[in-house]
Design a protein around this nucleic acid. Structure first.
Lengths: 356, 356
DNA sequence: CGCCATATTGCATACGAATGCAAAACTGTT
DNA sequence: AACAGTTTTGCATTCGTATGCAATATGGCG
């Protein structure tokens, strides 16, 4: 069966010689849909197996001008939302027979090296899932004619595709929920202020509160970072006039905030303060936290991302497409319950305010 | 400066024509250490910038027979240890001018497709950081002449390199700690039984307990999975003769166990039960959990991994190398403290039993 | 200024697979 | 059996870059 040691450098020509056919025949054997008779194919397959041959993807890329590689740029894996995304992306891309080239780590304004790499490897597509990324990069890539999808973020000029959820509506929903819970003083712990996601969530929150007549919001900025979130929580929650309702821009920070509230400041959640997060991810779901959170439909987001990429790659058309999905406010224990509006939907508790 | 739109297909020949030199000159300009005069280099650089040229890594790979790509195989990103590893790996590899091709998701016995991909892309090296991976894959890769490093795991036949920590000693240390804390009944929540890491930790634990005269250990298997860990905890901790000291094979599970113990079973940690984990990672450090845990020196582990790979790649020698690093028992609040042996080392509390 | 040693340069070819094209091998029909 | 129509095959070329080798330019020194 398997011949044990495999020499690394088996080429199609060697297989061809062994099978007594031309190199073209070998190539066609491994090219789906190519014109090849079953008989030759069988001969080639046998020879290939004996030699342990696998087509060289590099050489193939050179001539087809397709690398079958998708680059994924992701800055901050500490927030479990992103590893989850990564795993799902990997799965779907593999299904489409694409590989995933990962770029991670800090890439401040000096994003050019990354751009260089992307270009050098002639990746077929790019997923930018890094909220803290200069928006230049995306435009540069798009300008270079490579399909790009912004994941969980957009830019003003919508020249490049994106997949997001209705962050503005999400923020508003959170506001409605907290207002319905009878809270009086509202706070917000902000993510990166330059990120569209954060801006939208905050805008919606503000609108929702304003609609209910609340115009004052206590704000601290924590840039999606755990340590900064702790600091922000300390600052905001140790004030005598601290809020009794706090919206934190994502669950990753919300968890940190909750730790500080409970264990450093001795506050009871949700008795002394209600906390609502965003993403519905990771620790937020654990019983220790049970964070009430706007969900983002991760799987569908990734699905949309891959589908946009595949469309653009196969069509060659790079027309910006924006998929905007819906989330739900998943109700757990970190926030006081409103009298009405909380319903059970297949085992989960959701906040659905009555319309009008 | 930058010319706006960049055509994707700028080749070295085009640059050469524009600069009035040969294609070789262009190539040499972008090959560090190649023989090229400053004058020509300058001309080439100018032309290259004007055209937005970047060397085609694919074509380069074809001829140099080096892809400058390292494949990383990682099954389970939910355990934050691995995203952390991934991020650090990405950073170090980038520093060495290597790219990271990520393979993720379940890959049971049918690991061949992955192997195929690895071979097809002619990756220069492989990191296997998946505890749940058939050990065949590693040997196959090694047999194919590609440097492989097993991360946080080994195989019996040590034909392939590995980076681990002293899991056996770690398990033993945990035992000593719990014994010193005066516990009487011991439990173990196991990871994947086929993983070397789990076997070693358990073996050390057993030895350490045996040395103190404790030979009975209650065991449940949870395969490093959060849900299974919860189930295991329910089972073990609801028994009337439940242990008062519990070693959980990693922090990812320990956190789950703690949630169940506290919130489902109403146990107080560490009053009713002491819990010790492994990895010193993620939620284990948060105040809500404060899990006492054997640390794994992630950065140094990744460093060692990259260094082994680089050595083997540059030397062409693939001699298996095993780097085994030390961890420490980081003391927090999830386990009863022993009377002696806990010391403060730059801000952290460590358990260091007196020798002899 | 002439000569030799050294530094640069260009030419030609190689890497491994895909593919247009024409030749060759089949197929079925009369 | 001869023919047209259809598959299948092999040839030759191509992708974009690196590199050995020979040719050329440069520099130093007497």
């Amino acid at each position: 069966m398997d011949s044990g040691v495999k020499k690394p450098g088996v080429t199609s020509s060697e297989v061809a010689r062994r099978a007594g056919v031309s190199q073209s025949a070998v190539s066609r054997t491994f090219t789906p849909g190519a014109s090849i008779s079953p008989k030759t194919r069988a001969k080639v397959m046998t020879a290939a197996k004996e030699l342990g041959y696998r087509p060289n993807a590099i050489a193939r890329s050179l001539i087809t001008n397709r690398s079958r590689i998708i680059a994924v740029v992701m800055a901050y894996l500490e927030n479990l939302f992103y590893p989850d995304v990564l795993e799902e992306l990997g799965r779907l891309l593999a299904k489409e027979n694409y590989r995933l080239l990962l770029f991670t780590g800090f890439m401040d304004r000096d994003s050019d090296p990354i751009f260089d790499q992307l270009m050098q490897y002639r990746v077929d597509g790019i997923v930018l899932a890094s909220t803290s990324l200069s928006s230049d990069l995306s435009e540069e890539c798009a300008a270079a004619g490579i399909p790009v999808v912004l994941f969980n973020r957009t830019t003003e000029r919508d020249a490049v595709s994106s997949v997001t959820t209705r962050n503005r509506e999400g923020g508003r929903r959170v506001a409605e929920f907290l207002v319905a819970g009878g809270h009086k003083k509202f706070g917000y712990i902000s993510g990166l202020e330059s990120s569209s996601t954060n801006r939208d969530r905050f805008a919606g929150y503000k609108e929702g509160l304003a609609d209910a007549g609340h115009t004052e919001i206590m704000v601290e900025v924590a840039n999606y970072d755990r340590a900064e979130a702790e600091e922000a929580a300390r600052k905001m929650l140790s004030r005598p006039d601290r809020p009794d309702a706090l919206f934190v821009a994502n669950d990753h920070m919300a968890v940190a905030v909750m730790d500080v509230a409970r264990h450093e400041l001795g506050l009871s959640v949700p008795k002394d303060i209600s906390i609502v997060g965003y993403d519905d991810v990771g620790a937020a779901r654990w019983t220790s936290y049970g964070i009430t959170s706007m969900s983002q439909p991760l799987k569908r987001m990734v699905e949309a991302t891959v589908s946009i990429l595949m469309d653009q790659i196969s069509s060659g058309e790079i027309e910006a497409e924006h998929r905007i999905l819906n989330g739900e406010l998943v109700v757990r224990t970190s926030a006081r319950l409103p009298k009405t509006g909380v319903v059970d939907v297949d085992g989960r508790r959701i906040f659905k305010p009555a319309k009008g």
